[in-house]
Design a protein around this nucleic acid. Sequence first.
DNA 1: ACAAAAGTGTTGAGGGTACACCCATGG
DNA 2: CCATGGGTGTACCCTCAACACTTTTGT
Lengths: 244, 244
Amino acid sequence: MPALIPNISVDCVIFGFHEDTLSVLLTKRVLKDPKSRKIIFSDYTLQGHHVLEGENLEQAAVRVLEEKTGLGNIYLEQFHTFGDTDRLANEKDWLWTRMHYPEVHRHVFSVAYYSLVDSSRFKPDQKHPDAAWFPVKSLPPLGFDHNRMIVMALEFLQHKLRREPVGFELLPEKFTVTQLQKLYETILDTKFDKRNFRKKMAQMPYVVPIREKLTGKAHKPAQMYIFSKEVYEKTKTDNNSFIV
Amino acid sequence: MPALIPNISVDCVIFGFHEDTLSVLLTKRVLKDPKSRKIIFSDYTLQGHHVLEGENLEQAAVRVLEEKTGLGNIYLEQFHTFGDTDRLANEKDWLWTRMHYPEVHRHVFSVAYYSLVDSSRFKPDQKHPDAAWFPVKSLPPLGFDHNRMIVMALEFLQHKLRREPVGFELLPEKFTVTQLQKLYETILDTKFDKRNFRKKMAQMPYVVPIREKLTGKAHKPAQMYIFSKEVYEKTKTDNNSFIV
DNA sequence: ACAAAAGTGTTGAGGGTACACCCATGG
DNA sequence: CCATGGGTGTACCCTCAACACTTTTGT
């Protein structure tokens, strides 16, 4: 493994959607006293790592995703770079950093990405025991400036969602209209009329009904759809405000 | 002056608006053979510089603007960070960099900002003889990956302009509706109906008519307006798609 | 008087919003 | 048979787009 660049890192705000809730994937961080093994503090952080020598920025983000979740081929978008000198002002963060990465500088610039994951693809278990989903609305104490990063990532996601059909990245391949509507309502923090929402969908050629229904529920089975990226690319205009 | 951080720079895409044209402020770059003083090559670059030790990112961008144009208090917005390993792949760029900043690394990460300037505030002259405005539509040969940066900056500006009233930053304090319309048409590359455009303006309480008319032209004098940031902040909603 | 840009209202079409009931299934 | 979410159509309003002529000045 090449050396890491001591003053540049990437952080990933990984969004997932479960049970009508938008969540972020966080990793538990624990600092123990090296001698007594007593826990000095513990909190959570985003998935992040320093960029390696000879590595492109985006490669670094992809690598972080892959290492921390095992997932590949994920929607990823850079949204902001954080470079204040006081990013590591909190003594806890500096202590932790020095302990784990002694070569790292005091002033680290972090390029932040957000990514959208079909959360059924990642259950925190097995090889990634410290990762867990937390609802955006009730986050645990976070290290570094990661609170600010999540808030900002959410704003970027909201803007993006209004302009382009990225919501599908958060759903399983096959989904129902109600699932999609819930997703939009949750992320944009609004309510939509069921009939009007379905009318919108009906106008989008890239939301394609398939010969399958969601059965097993104590009500009428729901028609399932897939998102066709191919149709979307062919039919999109620059005029596409997706919703609202 | 503190040492510069050898692998992090900021670049500023400075937009100005003159004579119904959107322009970018570029600086002439010349590389001469140190012995013969013969010109090896010459082209243009954006305004940029490395971040200094102990300096925040945004501070660095403000400093670059101030040093290169003498202007302060300018609209500034970060839009993307460029970090490909081959950013300095072009031999010219590497040659020039080594000559002027021997301490700089081969892999430099550049945080790019765009800024909007009332172009009447900066005429390239006096203390900044190498800076000049170039229409976005006809740029000279550019160094580094600055072409890509400008293209991307323009896309961000277009999105921003549709959502928020930032166009005023490119105009003098007092302006006419026609000037504003031309600005929107130029940046968004469309045409608007004069009457419909004026109706939109009339609905915006923060575009305030003043007791002054633009005289001296061989036609009916035009009403002048100012942009009230104060009124805007008080009346804005999250629902503000500004134009189109 | 003429050129040149400023300024001004109306109409029609389309899209968005509001709203209530029946349907198919599992338990 | 009942509870649960799935699925459907219409009427109104408001916003957006299209369109042509008069006004005021400088030369």
